[in-house]
Design a binder for these strands. Sequence first.
DNA 1: TTCTATGCAAAAGCTTTGCAAATCA
DNA 2: TGATTTGCAAAGCTTTTGCATAGAA
Lengths: 144, 144
Amino acid sequence: MNSYHDTFKTYLVKIEGRYTDQKRAIVDEIFKTTKHFEVEAFLDRVRLRKGREFSRATVYRTIKQLFEAGLIQRITTPEGRVFYEHNFGKKQHDHIICNVCGKIFPIEEDIIHKQIEAYCKQIGFSPEYRSLHVYGKCKKCQEK
Amino acid sequence: MNSYHDTFKTYLVKIEGRYTDQKRAIVDEIFKTTKHFEVEAFLDRVRLRKGREFSRATVYRTIKQLFEAGLIQRITTPEGRVFYEHNFGKKQHDHIICNVCGKIFPIEEDIIHKQIEAYCKQIGFSPEYRSLHVYGKCKKCQEK
DNA sequence: TTCTATGCAAAAGCTTTGCAAATCA
DNA sequence: TGATTTGCAAAGCTTTTGCATAGAA
């Protein structure tokens, strides 16, 4: 139980789903390549790379299952764009996003997370999922 | 320059827009009532309260202008639901959201904000907009 | 008077769904 | 074999847009 394939398989067993060739290929592509992706761009890529047709519907359906399995998370920008990224081997879900170049930086600061958890505890809230997004201008884009 | 109407008016002057009856009524409704709202529900309410027809398009267009004027912010949940809320007289943009009852709690903790700003400074990122959403179960819903 | 805003309906994006055929267990 | 999945196209939702008319400045 130590790869994303195994994790997904376990989830599929639980919901009585099947691990098809398409799902395997999609999972492969998600976990082996770029971390952040938008569905339409991903669809193009998976079609290009895997050398055959993948229907839009199947990609959407598989992404949904991966999301429900907790293997990927959804990032929605204030402008309404939807990104996904895989969680595998990661604990945090926080991002700094440059409004100019679109680059996404992870936040590795444990102290922020602890502060948030402490606040939740204080008001009796039991947190399940957290999303912290900071938008602005990255160092490089400021210099331009 | 101390009411939301004035602030919006200033913005409209800047973009050479006009302050119409519909806009005034929409702004009134947003700032005088519930803090968090979804567009369709708001549309129903404004039609009910103001006793006349407001077109969907006008409501969307006005909300967009208010967003661009910085008077309201957009909250997008990981599930893709879009909420708006007014910023007037507030400094923070962070929320704790109960997955069960849907209630939204503000985060008033300055220490979290400072920590985030410190981290951005550390990596040379210049933050413009921040959104922190924590999902889980609120105290009441845990007790049920 | 001139130029923006409104209202309507159509169009646009993105995502989901129904159905017959294909595929997995 | 029996149930789920796929692919396709159609449908659904939310949001935007084109256009003629109404209204602000």
